[in-house]
Nucleic acid binder design. Structure first.
Length: 668
DNA sequence: TTTCAGACGCTAGG
DNA sequence: CCTAGCGTCTG
């Protein structure tokens, strides 16, 4: 290993030339505690010390076949390992800029081109690199980079096996492993300080994974979706969102007071002290002390899944609220408590600097394929605001009503605007496409599709004109549709709808009667899963469901629902990922556009756009997203058009719908 | 006796 | 159906 800081000017130039010409580059980050990205799962991420770069100038087929002796220490010809020191220094201390500059130059050389690079946990590396570059280099300069990440490759091969550490992956996926380390256990090998040897193993691992991906026809999906998404996510993660910290702190206090007040009310209603947030204590009060369940024997109260006890869930409390004041109080308590703990205090604890900036992590490893957000979970921040009535104890003052909306705490920067683009009813549209149900297709294909889909669906289903429908009809139609999409049974639906299982079952039946092909699609999917052991999404993503043939009725039924659910949800995830990539590329290749992707809330993309570019960019987003009806390279041709709703505003909580540009008619 | 990880319950999002 | 995350309760 050669330390870049010890190289002479001439040697550095040579290394840069070699980098540009290298056939393969393998990278890993090294942390200040001496561990690397390849070491076992680290809980806390220690500060970065640098990057190890392995340059491989010639791609010898022999080696990847496993024919060479290939002991980790004795790299064959054409290999060079360089250590790049990466240290964040305060701006005033940038004196050692020479070495600094070389590291940056080198990294840019590696990440700025489109050559193949291999890195385990590529997104982390990209994030640190981007942060290291700071403002000197625009993210657009690394927008084209392609980092092959074995973790993602393995996940694509089998989404079920949870993200394992590097050495587990090697053990599981490396066919040439025997040649690499004849008898040593992974642990022992891991202890070895020979990181450059590990880099060679990393290279082999990726080659083997590539072979598996190619065998299974997943290579294209890997390269043109997952790989490119890594960059999109890294750039998104670097961007910081402005949060109104003062307002958050203020609401935290208000909510705290409200909780105390509700707690007292609950104690009073119950006639005793108890821990309101504890479901087990609440169970005792509701069913042993007050015996409320005896007063509603006609209704079936839900039980907890594992212990078959009386549940205290929302569904139960809703049914009990006419019998006693307590359930209502608990419901409100829980709602307020949830908002306070997860979305106000939770966000506050995620903020780093005293002023603002929440950071959001993003992993690409969930079973169904969608991206998920963490710390805070931006995807689960309540859509609607809640009303809080603050009692005034000062004489003569009216009770004050306060609205609390966690989303409105997210504010755009000065001179910038939030733009949200929402794929309307993607899942339902996909269901229409996948099932080819004529009635369902008609809902979307008719020119009147400009209206509310659920209203037309409800009217079609119930045989009533749209004007005669009540809002409940729409809501019911929506819930039934999604429970069918999600594969929920009638028991589950009855809970959601607050009806008996029989009634719910009737609804589902009458729905499936009207849309016959939907049931056919469900059965076809299950059949396919039974035949092949897996189901496939619209762009070729797979999920293996071994339980589909299980003799256990519960397991098999679950697998059947998962199969159907995966095809619809997984395909929706595909479309959203594709949308992110396309829009990202568009911005990256535009010299003027500066819009940044901030968050993805499943079927909604949230951008921060310079005020002057909102109109132009809105057009780009809409055309790009709606054009995903046809994705030629994946053979995707949806039978229904895709619709995108746009809205914009200065805060995430107050977005106003944007008029649809004239140039984009409702239908082509 | 105290502490802490893991199981369980609930609910926000889609 | 599948996420994340907060809170109790248990051993």
């Amino acid at each position: 290993v050669c330390d870049a800081s010890r190289l002479s000017q001439e040697e550095r130039a040579l290394v840069l030339r070699e980098t540009a010409q290298a056939s393969v580059i393998v990278l890993t980050m090294v942390y200040q505690d001496g561990t690397a990205q390849l070491n076992a799962e680290q809980k806390s991420c220690p500060p970065v010390s640098g990057v190890l770069v392995l340059l491989k100038s010639e791609l010898d087929a022999m080696e990847s076949e496993g024919c060479s002796a290939g002991l980790p220490g004795s790299e064959g010809s054409g290999c060079k390992v360089i250590f790049l020191k990466l240290e964040q220094r305060p701006a005033w201390a940038q004196q050692g800029y020479r070495q600094d500059r070389f590291s940056k130059e080198m990294l840019l050389c590696i990440l700025g081109s489109a050559q193949d690079v291999i890195c385990f946990k590529a997104k982390d590396l990209l994030c640190t690199a981007l942060q290291y570059f700071g403002k000197e280099i625009s993210w657009k300069q690394v927008a084209l980079c392609r980092i092959l990440d074995p973790q993602i490759a393995a996940w694509l091969l089998d989404p079920a096996d949870t993200a394992s550490c590097f050495w587990d992956l090697v053990a599981k996926r490396c066919k040439t492993r025997a040649a690499v380390k004849p008898c040593a256990g992974a642990r022992e090998f891991e202890q070895q300080p020979n990181v450059s040897g590990s880099l060679l193993v990393l290279y082999r691992l990726m080659m083997d994974l590539r072979a598996s991906l190619q065998e299974q026809g997943l290579w294209k999906l890997f390269c043109s979706v997952e790989l490119r998404l890594t960059t999109v996510l890294a750039v998104m993660e670097i961007h910081r969102i402005h949060v109104d910290k003062d307002a958050l702190e203020k609401t935290s206090k208000i909510l705290g007071m409200k909780l105390k007040q509700l707690e007292q009310e609950a104690h009073q209603a119950a006639g005793q002290q108890f821990l309101v947030s504890s479901s087990s204590q609440l169970r005792v009060v509701l069913f042993e002390k007050l015996r409320l369940h005896e007063r509603c024997e006609n209704k079936k109260l839900p039980k907890t899944v594992l212990r078959q006890q009386q549940s205290t869930s929302e569904a139960t409390l809703m049914q009990l609220q006419d019998l006693h004041p307590l359930p209502k109080i608990i419901l409100e308590y829980r709602q307020v408590h949830k908002i306070k703990s997860a979305y106000v205090d939770g966000i506050l604890s995620c903020m780093i600097s005293p002023f603002y900036n929440p950071k959001w992590g993003n992993t690409s490893s969930a079973v169904t394929g969608p991206i998920t957000s963490k710390k805070p979970n931006i995807q689960a921040i309540p859509r609607q605001s809640i009303q809080i009535i603050k009692k005034q104890y000062v004489q003569g003052k009216e009770p004050e009503v306060i609205t609390i909306h966690p989303r409105s705490m997210f504010i755009s920067e000065e001179g910038w605007t939030f733009l949200a683009a929402d794929f309307s009813q993607v899942e339902l549209r996909l269901l229409a496409h996948l099932s080819s149900d004529p009635e369902l297709l008609r809902v979307f294909q008719e020119p009147l599709a400009a209206g509310d889909v659920f209203i037309s669906l409800a009217s079609q289903w119930k045989g009533l004109p749209e004007g005669k429908l009540k809002p409940e009809d729409r809501e019911q139609a929506k819930r039934i549709v999604y429970s069918v999409v999600y594969g929920a049974g009638k028991e589950r639906l009855s809970e959601i709808l607050g009806l008996t299982a029989e009634q719910a079952g009737q609804f589902v039946d009458s729905f499936l009667q009207k849309y016959k092909q939907v049931r056919a699609f469900t059965q076809k999917t299950i059949q396919q899963c039974q035949d092949q052991g897996c189901v496939v999404s619209i762009m070729g993503r797979r999920r293996h469901l071994p339980h589909i043939l299980s003799p256990d009725w519960t397991l098999r039924n679950q697998a059947e629902r998962q199969a159907v659910n995966f095809v619809v949800q997984g395909s929706a995830a595909d479309l959203c990922k594709m949308a992110m990539i396309r829009i990202f590329s568009h911005i990256a290749s535009s010299p003027t556009l500066t819009a940044r992707l901030i968050a993805q809330i499943h079927d909604e993309l949230l951008f921060e756009v310079e005020d002057s570019q909102v109109e132009e960019f809105a057009g780009v987003v809409q055309t790009t997203m709606e054009s995903l009806q046809h994705i030629d390279c994946f053979g995707v041709h949806l039978k229904v058009p895709l619709r995108v709703m746009l809205s914009s505003g200065k805060s995430w909580g107050s977005l106003a719908e944007l008029a649809r540009p004239r140039s984009l008619p409702h239908r082509l």
